[in-house]
Design a binder for these strands. Structure first.
Length: 323
DNA sequence: AAACGCTGCAACCGCCGCAAA
DNA sequence: GTTTGCGGCGGTTGCAGCGTT
């Protein structure tokens, strides 16, 4: 019934990406910016479908993403946001700019789901049923008709209030902003998985040893500088330089409170193109977000938020949850 | 040391929304 | 108004790595 899959063409490669493919993709995005994924396989010679390219970029190669263990703060945020938003992983990921929706989804499915099922998880567990409640009442499933709009709004208000309180707790831990990676426990440890910076640097290291593609596609002088550095010795690659070479700016974004610094630190048109998407994340403070974070930063008492909500009309604010 | 089971993650699949033709 | 096709999202799967027996 539906459209045929875009990737069932003969000759389209599937499975894990090789370092060479990653380099080709990164090089292409460096030159053209993310987007127009349809053209990527054609222009790069990658035998991958456009979707696969986009996914590889957004979930793995995109700069600014952090891999490895989730911190307690992140975990709490995910739990609360999941209770609040349901399985809207992309929406949840927008609150955790360093994490991809796929990562969050995986973490939920492999860790948090089990954790929340345990009966001893009383306080943290806003409750898993909230998800079911929320999703069932927002979805188009038949069960949604069992709950009136008024009841649904009331429930939602309660859920939001609870989520906000828990989120406030999470955010107030150590009095540190949640978006700063250095606040995380894992940042002081060796990460279980390399960051995307590490990944790309490693790719460069491995790739430049035995591939001519790299020298062909990355022919600008800055890249050659870093490649020469790597070739000169087998010592540890300078990650920041490798990354800077590849993307034309330093990796200070990694410690940036929000990703809007991406575009600020990169003045080239290409670079700004590349990070338009990322920069949007930090600036996406919708009405909901502003309301949510106003309180968590201590500016507004919680009760007032409750009162505001009680006067809030979803009919008059159809874009309340829009991101 | 080998076999087996479990876990976690990367990648794929199918559907949906939206915009262009 | 309809069709087409792209980008995006969420659910699911396959497999590598790890632990246990």
């Amino acid at each position: 019934m539906g459209r045929p899959p875009c990737c069932d063409k003969l000759g389209v490669k599937k499975g894990p990406w090789t370092p060479e493919e990653d380099i080709m993709l990164v090089s292409y995005v460096q030159q053209h910016g993310p987007g127009n994924w349809r053209q990527v396989p054609t222009n790069t010679g990658l035998r991958r479908c456009s979707k696969s390219c986009r996914l590889r970029w957004t979930n793995y190669l995109r700069p600014g993403i952090r891999r490895g263990d989730f911190t307690d703060d992140e975990e709490k945020m995910i739990i609360q946001l999941q209770a609040l938003l349901g399985n809207k992983w992309a929406a949840i990921a927008s609150y955790l700019p360093e994490r991809t929706d796929n990562d969050i989804k995986n973490y939920w499915n492999t860790h948090l789901k089990k954790k929340l099922k345990k009966p001893e998880m009383g306080s943290d567990n806003i409750n898993v049923n909230n998800k079911d409640r929320f999703s069932s009442s927002t979805s188009s499933s038949s069960s949604s008709h069992c709950v009136s709009r008024g009841q649904w709004e009331k429930r939602l208000q309660t859920d939001i209030h609870m989520a906000k309180q828990a989120l406030n707790d999470a955010l107030s831990i150590d009095q540190k902003p949640v978006f700063v990676p250095q606040t995380t426990k894992s940042s002081s440890q060796t990460p279980a998985y390399p960051s995307s910076t590490d990944n790309i640097a490693k790719l460069l290291k491995g790739f430049m040893k035995n591939s001519a593609v790299y020298t062909k596609t990355c022919s600008d002088s800055s890249v050659h500088e870093s490649s020469g550095e790597v070739n000169a010795s087998e010592s540890k690659i300078d990650l920041s330089e490798a990354f800077e070479s590849l993307f034309g700016f330093d990796q200070s974004f990694g410690s940036s409170p929000n990703n809007s610094d991406f575009s600020q630190s990169n003045t080239s048109p290409e670079g700004s193109m590349i990070f338009q998407e990322e920069s949007k994340v930090g600036l996406r403070f919708t009405m909901f977000e502003n309301w949510l974070f106003d309180e968590t930063t201590g500016g507004v008492v919680v009760d007032q938020g409750k009162e505001d909500l009680s006067n809030f009309s979803f009919d008059e604010n159809p874009d309340f949850f829009d991101n």
